[in-house]
Amino acid sequence: MEAHHQTLRSANALRVFEVAARSANFTLAAAELHVTPVAVSRMVSRLEDTLGIRLFTRSRLGVQLTEEGAVLHSAVSAGFAQMETALREIIRRRADRSTVTLSLSSGFISHWLMPRYARFQEAAPHINLRFEVISGVLRGDVDDVDLGLRLHDPARKWQSWAFFPEVVLPVCSPDYLHRMGAIDEPAGVRQHTLIHLTTTTMRWEEYGSRAGIDCRRPGHALGFSDSALVLQAALLGQGIALGWVSAVSGALREGLLVPAASSRPIRTGMEYRLVARPGSLREEVRRVLDWLVSEMQEDIATITRQYPVFLDI
């Protein structure tokens, strides 16, 4: 047993065996390894002696794997392939330290982050961003990303930083509001098109119940499984969408979307936080984190001045 452990720790012997088995020729193996054919033959013979089995049959025509040799070659080839993959990933990560990977909703990326991406590039010109996109509710692990935006979950052992409370309000384009009026006007919901997100933390019925508006029988309805498309439909004047302020603050700030009700937004009691797996943050990740928080704080200050309904958030 001890001899086997010593053999398995001899990566050089296994490497010579793998090349010899793949080449089916000791001379070709020697050329690949930059040694002599005699050195290859000796290394293979020592490995065979240690294991007490023949790995090759030898003849004037060359060498051929035995049944035991084929079994070992399959395992050794897979092992070296896995090691090569791991080494490439390590090298990629070290060379790619300037890239920060973010796990965010499609709506947040499309309608909050991308419109101000040029500002991010000015603030952090040497940092690249990569996105893992979530189309619906912000849930799931962040083990494979640098930062994620998630609803606060005390049970999770994440590092986390306050970003924005979960605040929901109906939003529409200024043109739609001018044509159709607010959702809480006397004419009621039946004249409006309500735009739905199919997987969400709050549906129109719940919003209406909490806001004192009967949203059960709209004039028309549109439904999407992707939050970015919900907001895009609202921006195009196709109806009224429920907007999570953490995603629509930029559009509200620029006047591309406006509140579609005179009532105050609904604060659910939940909170969105930027989260990361435990451990120290790279400087690049810290810079992205600080920039996101700063931009959101600036949005909050601006929309509070623009829209009195936000004074209580």
Rank of each mutant, 00 (worst) to 15 (best):
Ile91Met: 02
Ile91Val: 09
Arg92Tyr: 12
Arg93Gln: 05
Arg94Gly: 00
Arg94Ser: 01
Ala95Pro: 07
Ala95Gly: 07
Ala95Ser: 12
Arg97Leu: 14
Ser98Trp: 14
Thr99His: 13
Val100Cys: 11
Val100Leu: 14
Val100Tyr: 14
Thr101Ala: 12
Thr101Ile: 05
Thr101Gly: 08
Thr101Leu: 06
Thr101Pro: 06
Ser103Cys: 12
Ser103Trp: 04
Leu104Ser: 08
Leu104Glu: 11
Leu104Tyr: 04
Ser105Trp: 00
Ser105Val: 13
Ser106Asp: 09
Gly107Cys: 10
Gly107Ala: 07
Gly107Ile: 10
Phe108Val: 15
Phe108Asn: 14
Ile109Leu: 11
Ile109Glu: 13
Ser110Asn: 10
Ser110Phe: 00
His111Ile: 14
His111Met: 12
Trp112Arg: 06
Trp112Val: 04
Trp112Gly: 03
Leu113Ser: 09
Met114Lys: 04
Arg116Ala: 04
Arg116Gly: 03
Tyr117Cys: 08
Ala118His: 03
Arg119Glu: 09
Arg119Ser: 05
Glu122His: 00
Glu122Thr: 03
Ala123Ser: 06
Ala123Asp: 04
Ala124Thr: 02
Ala124Lys: 02
Pro125Ala: 09
His126Cys: 07
His126Val: 05
His126Gly: 03
Ile127Trp: 03
Ile127Lys: 10
Ile127Gln: 10
Ile127Cys: 13
Asn128Lys: 07
Leu129Tyr: 08
Leu129Cys: 07
Arg130Glu: 13
Arg130Pro: 05
